[in-house]
């Protein structure tokens, strides 16, 4: 199996889908956060692949760098929120956080 663009894209798609399904099924806030990480990672795979196999050049890699940075930031913040939530509710079950229910 030779590395190719479509191969990379396929991997990105699988990672993305897994992340989405993870987000949708985890009740644990941290699990949800992991799903997000997976989604971002899938996108990163795509960007890098484009950078490698198309005319995008170095731009794709730089985008993925930014995404990684933002993912880190987001993770930090999300974890802070999760901790806060935990402090307030003594749980991190996101289904309990339904104050926005219409």
């Amino acid at each position: 199996m030779q590395p190719s663009l479509s191969g990379y894209l396929l991997i990105g798609a699988v990672l993305f889908t897994c992340g989405v399904v993870c987000m949708a099924t985890r009740r644990n806030a941290i699990g949800v956060l992991m799903g997000v990480e997976l989604v971002l990672n899938g996108a990163n795979v795509n960007l890098v692949a484009f950078s490698r196999y198309t005319t995008l050049g170095i731009d794709g890699q730089i985008y993925s760098l930014f995404i990684i940075v933002l993912a880190a930031a987001e993770a930090a913040l999300a974890l802070a929120i999760a901790l806060n939530f935990y402090n307030n509710h003594l749980t991190i079950d996101v289904d309990k956080a339904s104050s926005l229910k219409g």
Binding site: V94, D95, S98, G102
Partner: peptide, 18 residues
């Protein structure tokens, strides 16, 4: 009538998006 959709549950929102 849409307020039933607005469950306030994060995961469902994700589902909706998808």
């Amino acid at each position: 009538s849409f307020h039933v959709v607005q469950t306030g549950r994060l995961r469902q929102y994700v589902m909706f998006i998808v």
